[in-house]
Amino acid sequence: MHPTEKIVRQFHESWDMRDPDRGAEVIAEDCDFEDVARGESLPGKEAYKADYERWREAFPDGLCKVENVIVSMDGEWATVEFRNTGTHTGVLRSSLGDFQPTGRRAEVRYCSVMRVKDGKVVEGRDYYDSATIARQLGLVD
């Protein structure tokens, strides 16, 4: 396995393992990460942990399964396809406000584009369809 793939897998698989500290180990202090769908910047380790806690609060049974990792020829960039699933039994805090638990399940495919330098994630972006989440949770028609 390419070292970049190992790093990005640790980043994502730590969500499934319920171990945000393990994920934070591979994040640079000055990491510039963006959640494109929410239009939010998530800089550094503490933002990663806060985002983990936000998601875990909304989906305590949530799973994050890596499906595919593609590493660029120069080894600096990786594209990660993954799937998040879970039951909305806690408050979902979002850029559109807080949504009370619906008890409904969601399954959403994501794509992360990440740059790794010196064994740390230094930059990245998550892309996903937030409308799919809202529909599955019954928040929109």
Rank of each mutant, 00 (worst) to 15 (best):
Glu53Gly: 02
Val80Phe: 01
Ser41Lys: 14
Thr89Gln: 01
Tyr128Cys: 12
Asn84Val: 10
Tyr127Ile: 05
Gly97Ile: 13
Thr79Pro: 06
Asp61Met: 06
Tyr52Asn: 01
Glu107His: 05
Tyr48Phe: 13
Lys49Phe: 00
Met73Arg: 15
Thr85Gly: 09
Gly119Asp: 09
Tyr127Met: 04
Gly44Thr: 05
Leu63Pro: 00
Phe99Gln: 12
Arg56Val: 08
Glu67Ala: 04
Val91Gly: 03
Gly124Asp: 05
Arg105Val: 06
Gly119Phe: 01
Arg56Ala: 08
Gly90Ala: 11
Leu92Lys: 07
Gly124Gln: 08
Ala58Gly: 14
Ser95Ala: 15
Val91Asn: 11
Gly124His: 03
Glu123Ser: 03
Met73Leu: 14
Asn84Ile: 12
Glu53Asp: 15
Arg105Gln: 15
Arg109Glu: 13
Ser94Trp: 10
Gln100Thr: 14
Phe82Lys: 09
Lys45Arg: 15
Leu92Ala: 14
Arg104His: 06
Val91Lys: 06
Glu57Pro: 13
Val113Asn: 12
Ala106Lys: 12
Phe82Cys: 10
Phe99His: 15
Gly90Glu: 13
Leu96Met: 14
Val91Ser: 10
Asp129Leu: 05
Arg115Leu: 02
Tyr127Phe: 12
Asn84Pro: 04
Pro101Tyr: 00
Cys64Arg: 04
Arg115Glu: 12
Met114Thr: 13
Ala58Arg: 13
Pro101Ile: 04
Glu123Asp: 13
Asp126Asn: 10
Ala47Gln: 05
Ser72Val: 09
Glu46Asp: 11
Trp55Thr: 08
Asn68Ala: 12
Asp51Ile: 00
Tyr52Phe: 10
Tyr48Asp: 05
Leu42Cys: 03
Val122Met: 02
Glu53Ile: 04
Gly62Met: 10
Ser41Phe: 03
Ala50Ser: 14
Ser95Phe: 02
Ala50Met: 09
Met114Asp: 14
Val121Gly: 07
Glu123Asn: 08
Asn84Cys: 11
Val122His: 01
Val71Phe: 08
Arg125His: 09
Asp126Ala: 07
Ser95Glu: 12
Asn84Tyr: 03
Thr85His: 02
Thr79Met: 13
Asp51Gln: 05
Met73Thr: 15
Glu67Ser: 09
Tyr127Val: 08
Arg93Leu: 08
Ala106Cys: 14
Asp51Thr: 09
Trp55Tyr: 03
Asp98Cys: 06
Gly75Phe: 08
Asn68Ser: 13
Tyr48Leu: 02
Val80Trp: 00
Gly62Tyr: 03
Gly75Trp: 06
Thr89Arg: 11
His88Thr: 10
Glu57Ala: 15
Pro101Asp: 07
Arg54Ser: 10
Met73Ala: 15
Ile70Gln: 14
Arg93His: 13
Asp98Phe: 01
Val108Tyr: 02
Arg56Phe: 04
Lys49Ile: 04
Phe82Gly: 10
Leu42Trp: 07
Ala78Thr: 04
Thr79Trp: 07
Gly86Lys: 04
Arg115Tyr: 05
Arg83Val: 15
Val71Ile: 11
Phe82Glu: 09
Ser72Tyr: 05
Gln100Arg: 14
Glu67Arg: 10
Phe59Glu: 03
Tyr127Glu: 01
Thr79Ala: 15
Val69Lys: 01
Pro43Tyr: 01
Ser112Trp: 05
Gly119Met: 07
Asp98Trp: 02
